[in-house]
Amino acid sequence: MATYTGLDRPKSKLYYQFWGIAFVLGLCGAMALLYYSTKTVEYTWRWNRVPQYFIYDEKVNIRAELEGTITSIKETGTDVLVTVQGDDGEESHTLPKVSLLLSQGDYVYPGDNIGFYSQTKPGILVEGVLLTLEVSALAIVFGILLGLFTGLARISDNPALRWGAITYIELIRGSPLLVQIFLWYFVVGTVINSMLAQHGLGQISPLWFGVMALAIFTGAYTAEIVRAGIQSVHRGQMEAARSLGLTYPQAMRKVILPQAFRRILPPLAGQFISLVKDSSLLGVISIRELTKASREVVSSSLQPFEIWIVCAILYLILTFTLSMFVQYLERKAI
């Protein structure tokens, strides 16, 4: 037990034990209540159906390509080598022994099923998580760059830069992310892709419009965090750096930003955790990230309770990892 640092009298050991137990009981009670209420609506939990959306075995059929006779079946361990002799050539297939459907001497036509093998594949939820990760990572990188530049522009003496930064920040913060995603995809996306099509060029996938929407949204908030961080560094630091003959950009890079960065790590982490969660909106422009993937699973499996709980836990794992990583950075920076 940590040393008590409060301003009131120290609490007894019993006090901590009692309220510790109360917390655990409260947690168990809440879960029991949830279980009980699902029972009353006669929901059948089928957790055993969930793993197939993470990993599953795909059955791939092996078909003959020639018309001919199976001349030989050679066993090599658990596999067999099947050779088909046709009029104009010979072909052979390797397949698991257990899946073999035919025997030596059988006559096959092109497309006939000789056997099959199974292939382990990542499920739709895993693919959703990977896409969420990809979109978030790209948006975080662009968001940091944009936020850093805008934050610096925001405190610049140059009116064009300063007003530009203020306009950008206020515009982006003033409208819902969902609307901005629609604007990027249905307005900007349509215009750009139509123009590309007119010049006979390839199309830009919705993913990139989604990344842009997220990055530009996060950039506006990051800019304000960066500005606050820079302004929190004592004035004397800039004066000391400049009095040594450093230029403004040199002083920023070597003295102010390293100190500001340490201070803004916690709010920055909060911003990026928000971003990971906000990426769930990208489903509306047909990016199959985790939320959209879950929705598709729900509509095919009809197990909404399990899937949405799993979906929430997957987001929790992503955000918690990010939060741990930033805490590690914070400890390292001090």
Binding site: H234, G236, Q237, E239, A240, A241, R242, S243, L244, G245, L246, T247, V255, Q259
Partner: peptide, 17 residues
């Protein structure tokens, strides 16, 4: 900046990095 490099300054609050 060239002038400042020739003029050292020591502050009341040190202002070390």
């Amino acid at each position: 900046n060239a002038i400042r490099a020739e003029v050292g300054m020591v502050f009341q609050s040190f202002n070390l990095f």
